[in-house]
């Protein structure tokens, strides 16, 4: 349904849950007409953003992300914070559909009046996720949420994309059979502001402590995210609700240090810049793939590359030069 920008802007600023939800739908839409309205909406909302703690959380499937957010978010919501959770779920590459089950693991938080949880399908393109989630984050900030949690599964490049839009990037891990570092990608360690070893409870406590030591060693080998911040490794139990206060204190402390050194402002400026470049790249891609001549020539060229009747370099050149024809120089 088409509504004018004022409907969305007013709804978000009034913190109307229904209109907020619809605004996120608008922002996520792949329709050009929707995107045009979304741009206006975001532009108007921009002055009302920037005050929230932006927190990214990743972890391998099974690390207990949803359970962590359930306990952590509930703790914050009960302290009076207004918590928005944006969860990105992978879509099936075959059918395009997705199963968005996060809230089944966030039962208490889901019904907390101080919380807003929105799972979003990745829709196949992780780049798309980045744009949508970043804008959804701004929408939630404008609606007065002061803690925004962006959750992503640890697949593909989604962690680094999310890390590039938040102030604090938390990597959730669990202790396994002792070979902890197998499950963690180097690229993830490089963007982590903290590693939290979850499920430090029951007969798992000692293993969690051991894992903590191993991650600490590993972190010493990578360059810290900032000269003023050495990413700590902590343990917690989302189920028993232990260690969560410490995680929150760390995040607040990080924010204080980064604000005092001016790094936070700098980071956000850089993020805005890389966002612009990201959109430029994306725009180019869309321009390319939607170009009627590209669309018509692509299948045949693909086939010729496959059967070896044309060199890949030559084919790429021909395709890219299609765009050049539109330029007036």
């Amino acid at each position: 349904m088409q509504r004018d920008p004022a409907y969305y802007i007013q709804g978000v600023l009034d913190n109307n849950r229904l209109q907020l939800a619809r605004t996120i739908t608008l922002v996520e839409s792949t329709l050009v007409t929707h995107q045009e309205i979304a741009r206006d909406v975001i532009n108007e909302l921009l002055p009302h953003t920037g005050k929230a703690v932006r927190l990214g959380i990743t972890g391998v499937p099974g690390a207990g992300k949803s359970t962590f957010i359930e306990s952590f978010g509930s703790m914050l919501a009960n302290k009076g914070h207004r918590v928005a959770v944006l969860a990105i779920d992978p879509s099936s590459t075959r059918s395009g559909g997705s199963i968005l089950g996060d809230k089944t693991r966030m039962e208490q938080l889901a019904i907390n009046p101080n919380a807003f949880i929105r799972p979003s399908p990745s829709g196949g393109s992780l780049g798309g996720v980045a744009r949508k989630t970043r804008e959804s984050m701004l929408v939630c900030e404008a609606a007065g949420f002061d803690v925004i949690i962006v959750e992503t599964v640890g697949v593909g490049q989604s962690e680094t994309t999310v890390a590039s839009m938040v102030d604090f990037f938390l990597v959730l891990q669990i202790s396994g059979a002792g070979d902890e570092l197998q499950g963690i990608k180097k690229g993830v360690l490089e963007v982590a502001d903290a590693i939290v070893v979850n499920k430090a409870d029951g007969d798992n406590i000692n293993r969690a402590k051991l894992a903590k030591k191993q991650y600490e060693t590993a972190l010493h080998l990578v360059k810290p995210t900032s000269p003023n911040w050495m990413p700590p490794v902590m343990t917690c139990s989302a189920v028993e609700k232990t260690g969560l206060e410490e995680v929150w204190e760390t995040i607040i402390n990080h924010k204080k240090i980064m604000t005092n050194t001016g790094e936070l402002q700098q980071k956000r400026r850089e993020q805005a810049m890389s966002w612009m470049w990201f959109l430029v790249n994306e725009g180019l891609e869309v321009w390319f793939y939607q170009h009627p001549e590209v669309k018509s020539r692509l299948p045949q060229l693909q086939k010729r590359v496959e059967d070896g009747s044309i060199a890949p370099t030559r084919a790429a050149d021909e395709l890219v030069s299609i765009l050049g024809k539109d330029l007036l120089f």
Partner: peptide
């Protein structure tokens, strides 16, 4: 239903029990 609808290309949210 959830699993099949997703297979058919729906985005499917599941509520808690």
């Amino acid at each position: 239903v959830a699993s099949s609808y997703a297979d058919l290309g729906f985005d499917v949210d599941i509520s808690p029990m």
